[in-house]
Design a protein around this nucleic acid. Structure first.
Lengths: 116, 116
DNA sequence: ATAAATCGTTTCGGAGCCGTATCATTTCAG
DNA sequence: CTGAAATGATACGGCTCCGAAACGATTTAT
Protein backbone atom coordinates (compact mmCIF):
# COMPACT_ATOMS: atom_id res chain seq x y z
CA UNK A 1 0.00 0.00 0.00
CA UNK A 2 2.41 2.60 -1.15
CA UNK A 3 0.47 5.59 -2.40
CA UNK A 4 -2.65 6.79 -0.60
CA UNK A 5 -4.86 9.00 -2.68
CA UNK A 6 -8.56 9.86 -2.56
CA UNK A 7 -10.83 9.65 -5.62
CA UNK A 8 -11.24 13.41 -5.89
CA UNK A 9 -7.47 13.82 -5.76
CA UNK A 10 -6.98 11.09 -8.33
CA UNK A 11 -9.40 12.72 -10.72
CA UNK A 12 -7.84 16.13 -10.31
CA UNK A 13 -4.40 14.64 -10.90
CA UNK A 14 -5.67 12.92 -14.01
CA UNK A 15 -7.25 16.14 -15.20
CA UNK A 16 -4.18 18.27 -14.56
CA UNK A 17 -1.92 15.78 -16.28
CA UNK A 18 -4.06 15.49 -19.38
CA UNK A 19 -4.53 19.22 -19.36
CA UNK A 20 -0.79 19.80 -19.53
CA UNK A 21 -0.38 17.24 -22.28
CA UNK A 22 -3.18 18.75 -24.35
CA UNK A 23 -2.06 22.33 -23.84
CA UNK A 24 1.63 21.81 -24.47
CA UNK A 25 1.81 19.31 -27.27
CA UNK A 26 0.13 19.84 -30.59
CA UNK A 27 -0.14 16.14 -31.19
CA UNK A 28 -1.01 14.12 -28.13
CA UNK A 29 -0.42 10.42 -27.84
CA UNK A 30 -3.41 8.11 -27.68
CA UNK A 31 -4.03 5.87 -24.69
CA UNK A 32 -2.74 2.96 -26.73
CA UNK A 33 0.44 4.76 -27.68
CA UNK A 34 1.13 5.81 -24.10
CA UNK A 35 0.57 2.27 -22.92
CA UNK A 36 2.98 0.90 -25.51
CA UNK A 37 5.58 3.53 -24.68
CA UNK A 38 5.40 2.96 -20.94
CA UNK A 39 5.38 -0.80 -21.33
CA UNK A 40 8.64 -0.65 -23.24
CA UNK A 41 10.18 1.73 -20.74
CA UNK A 42 8.96 0.07 -17.56
CA UNK A 43 8.93 -3.63 -18.25
CA UNK A 44 11.78 -6.00 -18.93
CA UNK A 45 12.89 -6.46 -22.53
CA UNK A 46 12.72 -7.99 -25.01
CA UNK A 47 9.58 -6.40 -26.50
CA UNK A 48 8.30 -7.77 -29.78
CA UNK A 49 5.39 -6.70 -31.94
CA UNK A 50 3.58 -9.90 -31.24
CA UNK A 51 4.26 -9.73 -27.52
CA UNK A 52 3.03 -6.18 -27.21
CA UNK A 53 -0.08 -6.96 -29.25
CA UNK A 54 -0.93 -9.88 -27.01
CA UNK A 55 -0.27 -7.92 -23.83
CA UNK A 56 -2.45 -4.99 -24.87
CA UNK A 57 -5.12 -7.17 -26.44
CA UNK A 58 -4.85 -5.46 -29.82
CA UNK A 59 -4.00 -6.67 -33.31
CA UNK A 60 -0.47 -6.67 -34.69
CA UNK A 61 -1.04 -3.84 -37.19
CA UNK A 62 -1.92 -1.61 -34.28
CA UNK A 63 1.55 -2.13 -32.87
CA UNK A 64 3.21 -1.78 -36.27
CA UNK A 65 1.48 1.54 -36.87
CA UNK A 66 2.20 2.80 -33.39
CA UNK A 67 5.87 1.97 -33.95
CA UNK A 68 5.77 3.84 -37.25
CA UNK A 69 4.32 6.91 -35.56
CA UNK A 70 6.43 6.84 -32.42
CA UNK A 71 9.45 5.91 -34.47
CA UNK A 72 9.00 9.08 -36.50
CA UNK A 73 8.80 10.93 -33.20
CA UNK A 74 11.99 9.11 -32.16
CA UNK A 75 10.38 7.89 -28.96
CA UNK A 76 10.99 4.24 -29.80
CA UNK A 77 13.05 2.34 -32.33
CA UNK A 78 12.92 -1.00 -34.11
CA UNK A 79 15.77 -3.44 -34.17
CA UNK A 80 15.83 -6.75 -35.98
CA UNK A 81 16.44 -9.64 -33.62
CA UNK A 82 19.79 -11.12 -34.75
CA UNK A 83 19.04 -14.53 -33.31
CA UNK A 84 15.67 -14.81 -35.04
CA UNK A 85 15.39 -12.39 -37.90
CA UNK A 86 11.62 -12.70 -38.03
CA UNK A 87 11.36 -10.81 -34.76
CA UNK A 88 11.47 -7.07 -34.34
CA UNK A 89 12.76 -5.84 -31.02
CA UNK A 90 11.27 -2.60 -29.78
CA UNK A 91 13.84 -0.51 -27.97
CA UNK A 92 14.15 2.76 -26.13
CA UNK A 93 15.69 5.92 -27.49
CA UNK A 94 17.35 8.86 -25.80
CA UNK A 95 14.51 11.14 -26.82
CA UNK A 96 11.93 8.67 -25.57
CA UNK A 97 13.69 8.30 -22.24
CA UNK A 98 13.64 12.06 -21.80
CA UNK A 99 9.97 12.18 -22.71
CA UNK A 100 9.07 9.48 -20.20
CA UNK A 101 11.21 11.06 -17.51
CA UNK A 102 9.54 14.41 -18.06
CA UNK A 103 6.15 12.74 -17.85
CA UNK A 104 6.98 11.15 -14.51
CA UNK A 105 8.34 14.38 -13.09
CA UNK A 106 5.28 16.27 -14.26
CA UNK A 107 3.00 13.81 -12.55
CA UNK A 108 4.98 13.99 -9.32
CA UNK A 109 4.80 17.77 -9.38
CA UNK A 110 1.07 17.76 -10.02
CA UNK A 111 0.55 15.27 -7.21
CA UNK A 112 2.44 17.52 -4.82
CA UNK A 113 0.14 20.42 -5.65
CA UNK A 114 -3.03 18.51 -4.88
CA UNK A 115 -5.25 19.94 -2.12
CA UNK A 116 -5.85 17.82 0.94
CA UNK B 1 1.53 18.82 -0.28
CA UNK B 2 -1.04 16.11 -0.17
CA UNK B 3 0.10 13.18 -2.25
CA UNK B 4 3.70 11.99 -2.17
CA UNK B 5 4.69 9.81 -5.07
CA UNK B 6 7.99 8.98 -6.74
CA UNK B 7 8.55 9.23 -10.49
CA UNK B 8 8.79 5.47 -10.96
CA UNK B 9 5.53 5.05 -9.08
CA UNK B 10 3.87 7.81 -11.08
CA UNK B 11 4.88 6.21 -14.36
CA UNK B 12 3.70 2.78 -13.29
CA UNK B 13 0.40 4.26 -12.16
CA UNK B 14 0.02 6.00 -15.50
CA UNK B 15 0.87 2.80 -17.32
CA UNK B 16 -1.52 0.65 -15.31
CA UNK B 17 -4.33 3.12 -15.73
CA UNK B 18 -3.92 3.44 -19.49
CA UNK B 19 -3.49 -0.30 -19.71
CA UNK B 20 -6.85 -0.88 -18.06
CA UNK B 21 -8.54 1.67 -20.28
CA UNK B 22 -7.03 0.16 -23.43
CA UNK B 23 -7.80 -3.42 -22.44
CA UNK B 24 -11.33 -2.86 -21.21
CA UNK B 25 -12.85 -0.37 -23.58
CA UNK B 26 -12.98 -0.92 -27.28
CA UNK B 27 -13.07 2.77 -27.94
CA UNK B 28 -10.88 4.81 -25.66
CA UNK B 29 -11.24 8.53 -25.10
CA UNK B 30 -8.50 10.79 -26.37
CA UNK B 31 -6.50 13.02 -24.03
CA UNK B 32 -8.55 15.94 -25.25
CA UNK B 33 -11.82 14.21 -24.56
CA UNK B 34 -10.74 13.15 -21.08
CA UNK B 35 -9.62 16.67 -20.30
CA UNK B 36 -12.95 18.11 -21.44
CA UNK B 37 -14.88 15.52 -19.46
CA UNK B 38 -12.93 16.06 -16.26
CA UNK B 39 -13.03 19.83 -16.62
CA UNK B 40 -16.80 19.75 -16.74
CA UNK B 41 -17.01 17.38 -13.82
CA UNK B 42 -14.38 18.98 -11.59
CA UNK B 43 -14.60 22.70 -12.22
CA UNK B 44 -17.37 25.15 -11.47
CA UNK B 45 -20.05 25.67 -14.11
CA UNK B 46 -21.04 27.22 -16.37
CA UNK B 47 -19.03 25.58 -19.16
CA UNK B 48 -19.41 26.96 -22.66
CA UNK B 49 -17.92 25.82 -25.95
CA UNK B 50 -15.90 28.98 -26.22
CA UNK B 51 -14.73 28.79 -22.62
CA UNK B 52 -13.61 25.20 -22.94
CA UNK B 53 -11.84 25.91 -26.22
CA UNK B 54 -9.94 28.81 -24.68
CA UNK B 55 -9.05 26.84 -21.57
CA UNK B 56 -7.72 23.87 -23.50
CA UNK B 57 -6.07 25.98 -26.17
CA UNK B 58 -7.97 24.29 -28.99
CA UNK B 59 -10.34 25.54 -31.68
CA UNK B 60 -14.09 25.64 -31.18
CA UNK B 61 -14.88 22.85 -33.65
CA UNK B 62 -12.77 20.53 -31.52
CA UNK B 63 -15.13 21.15 -28.62
CA UNK B 64 -18.21 20.84 -30.81
CA UNK B 65 -17.06 17.51 -32.16
CA UNK B 66 -16.06 16.23 -28.74
CA UNK B 67 -19.53 17.14 -27.49
CA UNK B 68 -21.05 15.29 -30.42
CA UNK B 69 -19.04 12.19 -29.61
CA UNK B 70 -19.41 12.27 -25.85
CA UNK B 71 -23.02 13.31 -26.21
CA UNK B 72 -23.66 10.14 -28.19
CA UNK B 73 -21.95 8.25 -25.37
CA UNK B 74 -24.22 10.13 -22.96
CA UNK B 75 -21.23 11.29 -20.92
CA UNK B 76 -22.10 14.98 -21.38
CA UNK B 77 -25.07 16.95 -22.62
CA UNK B 78 -25.71 20.29 -24.23
CA UNK B 79 -28.18 22.85 -22.93
CA UNK B 80 -29.02 26.17 -24.53
CA UNK B 81 -28.34 29.07 -22.19
CA UNK B 82 -31.79 30.64 -21.58
CA UNK B 83 -30.33 34.03 -20.68
CA UNK B 84 -28.22 34.25 -23.84
CA UNK B 85 -29.40 31.85 -26.44
CA UNK B 86 -26.15 32.04 -28.37
CA UNK B 87 -24.41 30.12 -25.63
CA UNK B 88 -24.39 26.37 -25.18
CA UNK B 89 -23.97 25.13 -21.64
CA UNK B 90 -22.16 21.83 -21.25
CA UNK B 91 -23.61 19.79 -18.43
CA UNK B 92 -23.09 16.51 -16.65
CA UNK B 93 -25.14 13.38 -17.11
CA UNK B 94 -25.85 10.45 -14.82
CA UNK B 95 -23.90 8.12 -17.09
CA UNK B 96 -20.98 10.54 -17.22
CA UNK B 97 -20.91 10.88 -13.46
CA UNK B 98 -20.74 7.11 -13.12
CA UNK B 99 -17.96 6.93 -15.68
CA UNK B 100 -15.92 9.57 -13.89
CA UNK B 101 -16.53 7.97 -10.52
CA UNK B 102 -15.39 4.61 -11.85
CA UNK B 103 -12.27 6.25 -13.26
CA UNK B 104 -11.38 7.80 -9.90
CA UNK B 105 -11.93 4.55 -8.06
CA UNK B 106 -9.82 2.66 -10.58
CA UNK B 107 -6.97 5.11 -10.12
CA UNK B 108 -7.18 4.87 -6.34
CA UNK B 109 -7.08 1.10 -6.54
CA UNK B 110 -4.08 1.12 -8.87
CA UNK B 111 -2.28 3.57 -6.59
CA UNK B 112 -2.83 1.30 -3.64
CA UNK B 113 -1.20 -1.60 -5.49
CA UNK B 114 1.98 0.32 -6.28
CA UNK B 115 5.22 -1.14 -4.90
CA UNK B 116 7.19 0.93 -2.45
C1' DA C 1 -33.81 49.78 -37.64
C1' DT C 2 -29.69 48.48 -39.16
C1' DA C 3 -24.97 47.18 -38.76
C1' DA C 4 -21.48 44.92 -36.14
C1' DA C 5 -20.07 41.50 -32.97
C1' DT C 6 -20.53 37.06 -30.70
C1' DC C 7 -21.37 32.16 -30.46
C1' DG C 8 -21.75 27.55 -31.87
C1' DT C 9 -22.18 24.67 -35.95
C1' DT C 10 -21.17 22.99 -40.48
C1' DT C 11 -18.37 22.21 -44.52
C1' DC C 12 -14.14 21.12 -46.79
C1' DG C 13 -9.94 18.69 -47.94
C1' DG C 14 -6.48 16.19 -45.58
C1' DA C 15 -4.49 13.11 -42.21
C1' DG C 16 -4.41 9.30 -38.75
C1' DC C 17 -6.04 5.11 -36.96
C1' DC C 18 -9.08 0.99 -37.12
C1' DG C 19 -9.73 -4.31 -38.17
C1' DT C 20 -9.53 -7.83 -41.76
C1' DA C 21 -7.16 -10.01 -45.02
C1' DT C 22 -3.10 -10.74 -47.48
C1' DC C 23 1.92 -10.56 -48.28
C1' DA C 24 7.16 -11.33 -47.95
C1' DT C 25 10.67 -13.03 -45.11
C1' DT C 26 12.52 -16.22 -42.04
C1' DT C 27 12.54 -20.40 -39.44
C1' DC C 28 11.46 -25.06 -38.55
C1' DA C 29 9.86 -29.90 -39.43
C1' DG C 30 9.78 -33.93 -42.06
C1' DC D 1 15.11 -29.88 -49.80
C1' DT D 2 10.55 -28.77 -49.63
C1' DG D 3 6.35 -27.41 -47.44
C1' DA D 4 4.26 -25.60 -43.18
C1' DA D 5 4.45 -22.32 -39.50
C1' DA D 6 5.61 -17.93 -37.49
C1' DT D 7 6.48 -12.98 -37.66
C1' DG D 8 5.93 -8.37 -38.91
C1' DA D 9 4.52 -5.32 -42.72
C1' DT D 10 1.23 -3.83 -46.13
C1' DA D 11 -3.31 -2.99 -48.83
C1' DC D 12 -7.87 -1.89 -48.34
C1' DG D 13 -12.24 0.42 -47.17
C1' DG D 14 -14.23 2.78 -43.39
C1' DC D 15 -14.42 5.80 -39.59
C1' DT D 16 -12.90 9.71 -36.70
C1' DC D 17 -10.54 13.71 -36.05
C1' DC D 18 -8.02 17.90 -37.52
C1' DG D 19 -7.71 23.24 -38.63
C1' DA D 20 -9.44 26.89 -41.56
C1' DA D 21 -13.12 29.04 -43.46
C1' DA D 22 -17.84 30.02 -44.13
C1' DC D 23 -22.52 29.96 -42.14
C1' DG D 24 -26.94 30.84 -39.41
C1' DA D 25 -28.75 32.44 -35.14
C1' DT D 26 -28.64 35.70 -31.53
C1' DT D 27 -27.28 39.75 -29.14
C1' DT D 28 -25.44 44.33 -28.80
C1' DA D 29 -24.21 48.89 -30.48
C1' DT D 30 -25.13 52.82 -33.30
Amino acid sequence: MAVEIRPSQALKLLHDLNYEMVRDDDRDLSARQITILLTVYLEQPPHTVRGLAAKLNVTKPVITRALDTMGRMELLQRRRDPSDRRNVLVQRTVKGALYVERLGDLMVAKAKELPL
